[in-house]
Design a protein around this nucleic acid. Structure first.
Length: 577
RNA sequence: CGGGAUGUGGCGCAGCUUGGUAGCGCACCUCGCUUGGGACGAGGGGGUCGCACGUUCGAAUCGUGUCAUCCCGACCA
């Protein structure tokens, strides 16, 4: 490819609407352009990268025994009603109507469709297990698209679905996919961590996410990990507390009584007023779970992890109550307490749940539904809790549930995940096969996703410097750029063209920068776009040499043109292994 | 959805307070010159100032409404 004909427009400045580095770089280097919020045009350079990520994914999936197919982007409402998700999925599902007023949606994922395909085509245990996948655009009408390709509304995803006859078979396929994923991300030049995670709205039991570890805002997940193998998304992480048992008696709270605590709306204010640590306060939060209020107790120095709470309640939607909702709830129970003074004491017909660590609290401080008052030296019997669950957000420094060492935290970009779905879809959708004994049984399913476009963006997050992108060879749009410093210099042009042609003959993806630009422009563009190797033909040609520049390190090496050709081919092939 | 901000050629911005019919840098086209780190000179093309309504002799500028986009919080590949 001649640079003069390559469809690319690099920008002198970063776009003003981009926040994270992958977004800035990809726009500035001419890979993508926004069409509308969360929706991007993939320009030729980007498309080459995406096709490479796709192909690596495809090769590894095929090698793992999965079969590729392609399902429609448009899906009928009826199947979504069968699974129950037409109601549940909410506004993230892009809904539309056809000319006959039939309701449809744009696929955010394809469990319904694949389950339909399976029940039509997989009637016998003899056909199982099977794993089907596709690579396709998905549409999710995100509340807040952001970070360019990292959180778009339309994005490219590889989604795979497995159908098994037993849990053992599913376990085997799950591990098979986990290994395929490690291969895929390694080949893409992306180090990932496989972490335990919540299975969320898609449902199921066991699930893991593949995270690209980063220390920037682009990592939207908190990952807790230990020096042993344990690691988990914050929505799923568990821990042991260094000091699980707290007793208010140790700081003077020995006699149970209700006392005045004026203007102590926050835990901090209350702890300061009483001169006790926050851990001896039992705080009570009001949540709205599926439109109904719920009271959640947790130790004062800890936070509620809402996904855990949601799962503990079996709810599909949860949020903290507004002050108006709290006021209404209190009024219905004959109280006027505001947030900060609430408790379950005297509340009627309301779900009450407490974090497990509350069990280990003694002689604690708690609200009594009366403003400016708290009970001190209270105990479990006083707060009417019957149900306990782990609803606590883990913090760094708490102890690993497996080995007891302190947990660390970092941020991660989720590029892939694997789920054990079980019969979550096959059962309601009546998707069954006939077993050996002739009995109809629902498939035991798994699903496995990779964000293709997100993976490409995550690669930029992981590999860049202030000059631009440093693409790993395996997913770079081109491997090499050959830069004659002056296109007017016949010797330089001849050598450059010769190198270019030799590389082309060897199947190397190479660009010749034949533009009549000054060298600075060409070097800046080469580094911004991120060609893994650059061969500069310039002044050193007087000594019969060219320069081989490695993008990752910007290291320059002078060598003869023929050497540069064989050397660059060798290095590319070494990295493509 | 709540909170904050912004909409002016492809990109980055000024002009708006104090209304008078649009400007700068980059990019693009032509010519010259230049060629080891985003040169220079001359000439040129491109914008109903997000949209609608209103105020006014006159609106990018003032008012109302609306749409879009971005940033901060709860969801997900």
């Amino acid at each position: 490819m001649k640079m003069s004909k390559l469809f690319v427009q690099t920008l002198r400045e970063f776009p003003s609407d981009a926040e994270v580095v992958s977004h800035k770089m990809l726009v500035r280097a001419g890979f993508i352009r926004k069409l509308t919020s969360g929706v991007y045009n993939y320009l030729p350079l980007m498309w080459r990268v995406l096709k490479k990520v796709e192909n690596i994914t495809r090769e590894e999936m095929d090698k793992a025994g999965a079969q590729e197919l392609l399902m429609p982007f448009v899906q009928p409402k009826e199947l979504w009603e069968e699974s129950g998700r037409w109601e549940v999925y909410g506004r993230e599902l892009m809904r539309l109507r056809d000319r006959h007023d039939r309701e449809m949606c744009l696929g955010p994922t394809h469990e319904e469709i694949i389950t339909y395909i399976a029940r039509e085509g997989l009637k016998s245990y003899k056909q199982l297990p099977v794993n089907l996948y596709q690579i396709q655009s998905k549409f999710r009408d995100e509340v807040r698209p952001r970070f360019g390709l990292l959180r778009g509304r339309e994005f490219i995803m590889k989604d795979a679905y497995s159908f098994s006859t037993s849990q053992e078979e599913l376990d085997a396929e799950y591990e098979n996919m986990a290994q395929a994923y490690r291969n895929i991300f390694n080949r893409c030049g992306l180090p990932t961590k496989m972490v335990q995670s919540d299975s969320g709205a898609i449902g199921g039991n066991v699930s893991h996410e593949f995270m690209v570890i980063t220390d920037t805002d682009a990592g939207e997940n908190d990952v807790f990990y230990c020096e042993c193998d344990y690691s988990a998304n914050s929505n799923h992480a568990i821990s042991k507390l260094p000091q699980a048992t707290v007793d208010g008696a140790e700081c003077g709270l020995t006699e149970k009584k209700v006392i005045d605590t004026p203007n102590t709306k926050t835990i901090e204010e209350l702890a300061n007023f009483l001169n006790v640590p926050q851990s001896v306060i039992c705080k009570c939060l009001v949540y709205i779970a599926d439109k109904k209020p719920v009271l959640a107790y947790i130790r004062g120095d800890k936070q509620v992890e809402e996904t855990k709470l949601m799962n503990a309640l079996g709810a599909i939607d949860i949020r903290i109550a507004s002050s108006e909702e709290i006021e209404e709830l209190m009024a219905n129970n004959g109280f006027s307490a505001k947030a900060g003074f609430i408790s379950a004491i005297g509340m009627k017909d309301i779900k009450i749940i407490a974090d497990e660590t509350v069990k280990d609290m003694k002689n604690f401080v708690v609200g009594v539904n009366e403003n400016d008052k708290h009970m001190v030296a209270a105990n479990l019997d006083d707060i009417q809790v019957k149900e306990f669950a782990d609803i606590r957000l883990v913090e760094a420094g708490e102890l690993c549930p497996e080995c007891g060492k302190p947990l660390k935290v970092t941020r991660g970009i989720e590029v892939g995940n694997i789920f054990q779905l079980g019969t979550k879809y096959s059962e309601p959708m009546n998707a069954v096969y006939l077993d050996k004994d002739g009995k109809a049984k629902p498939y035991i399913m798994g699903c496995y996703g990779i964000g293709i476009s997100r993976t490409a963006a995550a690669a930029v997050e992981a590999h860049h410097d202030e000059n631009g992108i440093k693409w790993p060879v395996a997913i770079a749009p081109y491997h090499v750029i050959v830069v004659p410093v002056s296109t007017k210099d016949e010797t330089q042009m001849k050598v450059a063209e010769d190198i270019y042609n030799k590389l082309l003959e060897q199947g190397i993806e190479v660009v010749l920068d034949d533009r009549n630009e000054r060298p600075g422009v060409k070097f800046k563009d080469a580094e911004l776009i991120g060609f893994p190797f650059r061969i500069t033909v310039g002044k050193t040609i007087e000594n019969g040499n060219v320069e081989l520049v490695t993008r990752a390190t910007l290291e320059k090496e002078e060598m003869a043109p023929e050497t540069a050709v064989t050397e660059v081919i060798a290095r590319i092939n070494a990295q493509l292994k």
